[in-house]
Design a protein around this nucleic acid. Structure first.
Lengths: 342, 342
DNA sequence: CCGACACTCTACAACGTTGTAGGCCGCGAC
DNA sequence: GTCGCGGCCTACAACGTTGTAGAGTGTCGG
């Protein structure tokens, strides 16, 4: 651990640079010399000092991933996928949690800690459209999430509006007409909640079903407890509905739990639809029909896109918007028309 | 971003070392000089180059956390807690996934990538007691998990035997006598499964209840699907039981799901007990009675212990075994005797 | 009035690596 | 016989930072 190129060079009786050349596969080395050096490396158990290499090369071989909270399943699965993709590309991943707090997100962007990485995959939650300018930094950055669009950076995300529309159309096609929503954010236009609600409204409109905000429940963060709270809220209002669209799986699972506590059958009385395609949605009772928004593709694409930015020497290249394909995952909580007919 | 101490020094008209001194709060600097330097720093937007600092100081300010799989809720929550604790200590965290594979775990230990960090918090899953020697490296290391004991490193973990014993005693106290187990690992003695099964057996023995391996179901990994599979297995065997102890929450949730599909009421017919105290166990239907093994304490203690090892210059100091407190979290899937009486 | 000492600052080296320039050798071509 | 050239290797500088040694002031006590 403590041995350096210097030690190896001395043991092998060559110059320090020759050792470096052996390590980096420089072509013109006599086989005899190479063998001697490799023997010395093995004897000393030499491993290159990556910090020194970073200083010299300007590359660290690490990227940062910033998410609101790892304990949220969605972000845990995202992080898992990012780390896996990064590892394939020979990169390690430094994970930061921002708590979804705007100030902490901005602080992170300015933080010198980022210097320890070659680039950042940034899942913003607290920042808004007005903060787009803060993203313009001379540092490879890939944006995730749907809080900011049209920023001067590459952006990998999902088709929120279209997917939510498809989810709603799916419920409508199975005969539901009063589709409640859990997890709306008051007044939000951009952001997962706003976009998904827009898709929901578009679907209603196309089907000629009136939008009724008495069956829309608002929450702040998308924790499971808030899904439960939102559903209790709806039940307290005494409104009627035959389906619930949880704007993410966690909310939907919390809501479904409260429905069942209240003696309401799922899906017989009320169908439940989620969004995210989490692992755990497959094992709830009943299993949760949901949208797979293409998270693995997003993770993989974020890594490769960031890598391109890192390798590109010219800062140029138009910022790109990359959108994942989605699909409805049909399960028990909201059977399709075909499944009901069968 | 591109400015260095050199640039600042030139602008402020002082030596490069003086600038360094200002940044590091060296005491003997004239206020006028300090102001001049600080102005120059502000003008240039200078931030210190952390890579250079690391090379010089031998410290990176980063630690590594290796877990089997971030997508598993238990490890996601662990990672979240570790990152939070590390941040408070001014450290960033590099997260690695080993897949619980022994070879990848060993490879990680040898990996030069670790040089980018000051220490490692290592949650081993694939390695076993025989691999203890591999942990003996001149590198700050804190071990988590229960695959390896008596290794020459600090070890922070939970009281598996005692906690599983308490869980079983809790079920026995509520009147259950035929307590099935889901998630046992065949022949395992050390490891979460082996230890928790031991606690289970100890509790049975103390209560004079015979151990019956026909109601013990074995699985490999503790994914949710395996909990479901284990329970189906038990049902297929045609054995009778009035409680199930899932060796972790994920297994218990999968098992509970299958029970209910089979028309078996929880907890009326069969009580279900988990282990881990995951967030999601609170929102299942019914909510899951479980063991909180003190995960947050473990995360926090792992970070502080690692930090001590890093700061300690002498390699000495006995390896320590630090054990978290646990407690039973009483919920619906297994009500306590008191709750039943009420 | 001089030496001691505290204060303020500078020059240099070093952390371990890699890029650049160049040196030496042997061989083939003129 | 010498020139040129490719193959092999070395010396040196540089990445940006901080520790060490020490130089130059000023002040204070004897």
């Amino acid at each position: 651990m403590a041995s350096t190129l210097h030690d190896v060079a001395r043991l092998a009786g060559v110059s320090i640079k020759t050792v470096s050349n052996v390590i980096n596969d420089y072509p013109h080395i006599r086989p005899a010399t190479k063998a001697k050096v490799e023997q010395a490396i093995a004897d000393l158990g030499y491993t290159p000092n990556l910090t020194a290499r970073s200083l010299r090369s300007g590359r660290t071989g690490a990227i940062a991933l910033a998410v609101p909270e790892l304990a949220l399943s969605y972000f845990a699965e995202l992080a898992a996928a990012v780390i896996e993709a990064a590892e394939e590309a020979g990169l390690v991943v430094l994970v930061e949690q921002t708590g979804g707090d705007r100030d902490r997100e901005l602080e992170l962007l300015r933080s010198p800690r980022l210097q320890m990485t070659d680039g950042l995959i940034f899942s913003a939650l607290g920042m808004g459209q007005d903060d787009a300018a803060h993203l313009e930094r001379p540092y490879p950055l890939v944006l995730l999430g749907e809080r900011i669009f049209d920023a001067p950076v590459d952006h990998v995300t999902m088709r929120n509006v279209e997917a939510a529309r498809a989810a709603t159309e799916y419920l409508l096609a199975s005969g539901r007409r009063r589709i409640a929503v859990v997890g709306a954010h008051p007044g939000e236009v951009i952001g997962s909640a706003g976009l998904r609600l827009r898709g929901y409204r578009e679907a209603l409109e196309s089907a000629g079903v009136p939008y009724d905000d008495s069956i829309i429940s608002e929450t702040t963060t998308w924790h499971r407890a808030n899904g439960a709270r939102g559903m209790r809220d709806l039940l307290d209002r005494g409104v009627t509905f035959d389906a619930v669209f949880g704007l993410n799986d966690t909310l939907a699972l919390g809501a479904m739990r409260v429905l069942q506590e209240a003696g309401i059958r799922v899906p017989a009385d009320v169908a439940v639809m989620g969004f995210d395609g989490l692992d755990e949605a497959e094992y709830s009772i009943p299993s949760l029909t949901t949208i797979d928004p293409g998270q693995r593709w997003i993770a993989r694409t974020a890594v490769t896109t960031l890598l391109e930015r890192i390798q590109r020497t010219d800062a140029a290249g138009e910022p790109r918007l990359l959108l994942a394909d989605f699909h409805v995952v049909e399960r028990e909580s909201a059977p399709s028309k075909a499944m009901i007919d069968a």
